[in-house]
Amino acid sequence: MSLHDDAVAVLEAYAGPDAQQKELRGTYLDHLAGHPDGMWKACGAGHLTASALVVDPERGRVLLTLHRKLRMWLQMGGHCEPQDTTLAAAALREAAEESGIAGLTLLPGGPVRLDRHPIPAPCHWHLDVQYAAIASAGAVERISDESLDLRWFPYDEVAGVADASVVRLLESTRVRLGHGR
């Protein structure tokens, strides 16, 4: 199965918690149906990306990266690579590379959210498939070349440093963990 095929299967299985997420799921599936290259950065109409919010549920905190180019506190994530066999594997790879944490595990149940956001030309859209990754007790982070900083934030401080998409991802992750509002 190709990465494109995996993405279609993941999205078809994604129920989405609300009408907006279900509509976005349809947008992603339409994009993949119309763009055989829709998984790759080279797709000028936009492309799928994979990300993961690194969570330490025992301490009620998340690890965010201060993105080098965007200068924003974000979850770990990025472009799919040819060696990625699944969207989940891409999200986990990105989380491990950008956090420096070995042994992360994805929260069961598939993606936590979808988030479509504009990016500068030549590509126009990131269609992000967002997962949550659990850090083991005592995990030690290491800043990558893509980050200016890495920092653990208590759940209640995330809204003060990150944009609404990260806040929504955290809220959905907390619900999935059984710690949500």
Rank of each mutant, 00 (worst) to 15 (best):
A89N: 06
E81R: 14
E58K: 15
A45Y: 14
E98I: 05
E81Y: 06
V62D: 02
A52E: 04
L53C: 07
L70D: 09
T85L: 13
E94Y: 02
E97C: 07
A52N: 01
L64H: 07
A52V: 05
D84C: 02
I101N: 04
G100Y: 13
A50E: 12
L87G: 08
H67M: 08
C80E: 09
D56F: 08
H47D: 05
Q83T: 11
H47Y: 15
T65D: 10
R68G: 12
W73E: 01
M76D: 03
W73H: 07
A88F: 02
Q83H: 15
W73I: 03
A90F: 00
K69R: 15
M72Y: 13
T49E: 10
H47N: 15
L48T: 15
M72S: 11
A91T: 08
V55Q: 07
V54K: 05
I101V: 13
L64F: 09
M76K: 03
P57R: 09
L63Y: 05
A50G: 13
C80V: 10
L70E: 12
H67E: 14
G44M: 08
R71Q: 14
L48A: 10
L64R: 13
D84Y: 00
G103T: 08
E98D: 09
R68Y: 12
L53V: 09
I101Q: 03
T86L: 03
H47L: 07
Q83P: 01
H79M: 12
E97L: 12
S99L: 04
V54F: 08
L104P: 00
A90N: 01
T105C: 10
K69T: 15
E81M: 14
A45L: 13
G44Q: 13
Q83M: 13
W73M: 02
P57F: 03
P82L: 03
S99P: 00
T65L: 15
I101D: 05
L92H: 00
E58H: 14
G46H: 05
L63K: 07
P82A: 09
G60V: 05
L104K: 06
R68M: 11
G77H: 02
G103L: 08
L53Y: 02
A102K: 12
A52P: 00
E81V: 08
L63T: 08
A88V: 01
T105I: 10
R71W: 10
L63P: 00
S51Y: 06
P57G: 08
